[in-house]
Structure formats: structure tokens, C-alpha cells
């Protein structure tokens, strides 16, 4: 009888220990800490740390090839949003701390990230480089209202909300700019056959996410913010990182997660 109780006791202790270990491992997996220089920026609302691609919680930034209009002028708000995030990180001495909240069904995870106490999502919304994508009324709504009333960033003019942009909606001028392929194309005036003034072309407009299949069969994508974007072979195939990820492609340098391994290798 006593030995049965002893076995039960040991089993209970083991179970408790197991739960504790599981909880501890879950907690460590939920928090990611990295030096700012080790953080890659995929676009204005997505970062990559140590092979994990993280969507910044509660925000939706213009997609990487998206253009916005300000005072009749088109500007690469998607690229600039990503660059603003790069600049924000480039200046930091403190570690970037991310709390992973959930997986959105694919290889990307959603995370709340901060550096030196400054929330990255909030900072991006504050300077008008991302929109508040959450439904809950909170501090971010107030921050967005301030950015909107000051006409900061994308709020300076017209833009298609990123969610609708991903579905294919475009500003009229934006659609025209996407079809311009060269800096020198489209200029109407020539002197002795030589174009006198260049037409400023918006670089990286439209569907600019490159995709390639590596020799070992890995399907990966890169955005113009990736340092290797210009040199890697592959054609622009996707309009956004979300689209590529939904289709089962992994960001360049991203670790293969068990849940997406089958998709990535199809």
C-alpha cells in the first residue's frame, strides 16, 4: 500500500515538474530578445529575429510596393515605412524584446515588440507610417488620431488601406506609376532625339516581392528591404509578404517551422 502511495507521489511530482518545464519552455519561447542589429526588417510591420518572422501586433503598414499620394505627388510609402522601422532600430543600444502572442495560421507569428521601453507598433503609428489594425479602443487609437490630425506620413494625403491594397485596390495614379518601367520612359520632350529631363520613377512600386526556389527545394521570398534583394535571382512574384507567406513561401533566412515545412517544400 505504502509503495503504491510512493509511486503515486512520484508520478504526481513528475507530472507537476513536467507541467512546470512545459510552462517554462513556453514562456521562453514566447519572449524573444535580440540586439537591434540582429533584427531584419521585412516591411513596415514585419521583422525577422533569429529566423522567426514576426508581425508587429495591432498595426498594418503600407505594403512594400505600395505608393501613397501627398499633394499630387506619389511617394513610396511602403518602402519608406519599412525604412522608418529600420532607422528606428538602427539607433538603439538597448535590446529588442518581443512577446509572441499567437500564430496567424502560417509561418509568421504576431508579436508585441519594444526597444528601450518604446513600443515599435506605437512608434510606427505615431509617425504616420502604419495604421492601427486593432479593434479595441486603446492608446493606439489616440496615437493614430494625433498622427491623422497632424497629417503625418501616410495621413498627409491619399492611400489605399493596406488590407484593401492586398486585395488589389490601387489609387488611379498608383496604377499608372506601376506600369512605368524605366526612369527615362514616358518623357514626352526630346531634343535631337535625346530626352532632356528625366521623369522621376518611383522605384519598387507594385508587386515587388521576389520569389525563388533554392537548389534544395526551399521556396523563399525577399522584399526590397533585404540586403540581398538586388542580387538574388528571381522575379517579382508577389504583391506583399503576407501574400507570399499565405502561399507557403518563407522569408529569406527564415527557419522552417514544422507547421509550414510541408507547404514550403511542395
Amino acid at each position: 500500500m505504502a509503495s503504491i502511495q510512493k509511486i503515486r507521489g512520484i508520478a504526481l511530482a513528475a507530472a507537476v515538474l513536467g507541467v512546470a518545464v512545459t510552462l517554462a519552455s513556453t514562456a521562453s519561447a514566447a519572449e524573444i530578445v535580440a540586439a537591434p542589429k540582429q533584427v531584419g526588417v521585412v516591411d513596415g510591420d514585419t521583422i525577422q529575429i533569429d529566423g522567426r518572422v514576426l508581425n508587429l501586433v495591432r498595426i498594418d503598414a503600407p505594403e512594400i510596393g505600395q505608393l501613397c499620394k501627398s499633394g499630387g505627388h506619389l511617394w513610396a510609402c511602403g518602402m519608406d515605412s519599412g525604412r522608418a522601422l529600420q532607422k528606428l532600430l538602427a539607433m538603439q543600444l538597448d535590446q529588442v524584446v518581443c512577446h509572441v502572442s499567437d500564430k496567424n495560421g502560417g509561418a509568421m507569428e504576431t508579436a508585441s515588440c519594444s526597444v528601450g521601453g518604446r513600443d515599435l507598433s506605437e512608434a510606427m503609428v505615431a509617425n504616420g507610417m502604419a495604421t492601427d489594425a486593432g479593434d479595441d479602443p486603446g492608446a493606439l487609437k489616440t496615437v493614430q488620431a494625433q498622427a491623422k490630425s497632424a497629417g503625418l506620413g501616410i495621413w498627409a494625403g491619399e492611400f489605399v488601406p493596406p488590407a484593401r491594397w492586398r486585395q488589389g485596390e490601387r489609387l488611379v495614379a498608383e496604377r499608372m506609376a506601376e506600369t512605368t518601367t524605366s526612369q527615362w520612359d514616358g518623357f514626352p520632350y526630346k531634343v535631337f532625339g535625346v530626352r532632356v529631363l528625366p521623369v522621376p520613377r518611383v522605384h519598387h512600386a507594385g508587386c515587388v516581392v521576389k520569389a525563388r526556389t533554392t537548389d534544395d527545394g526551399r521556396h523563399e521570398f525577399a522584399t526590397p528591404l533585404d540586403p540581398s534583394y538586388e542580387v538574388i535571382p528571381g522575379e517579382p512574384s508577389f504583391c506583399s509578404d503576407d501574400e507570399a507567406e499565405r502561399d507557403g513561401w518563407l522569408h529569406i533566412g527564415q527557419s522552417e517551422h514544422p507547421s509550414t515545412k510541408s507547404l514550403a517544400r511542395r
Binding site: D80, A84, K87, N127, A150, L152, G153, A156
Partner: peptide, 15 residues
Amino acid sequence: GNIIGPAGTFQSLPD
């Protein structure tokens, strides 16, 4: 501040 501090950008400002 967040907008035009060393880690911010003047690009965001209205014209």
C-alpha cells in the same frame, strides 16, 4: 520625440 528625434524622420512631417 518620436517623430523627429534621432531615430525618427522629418519625412513624416506635413508639407
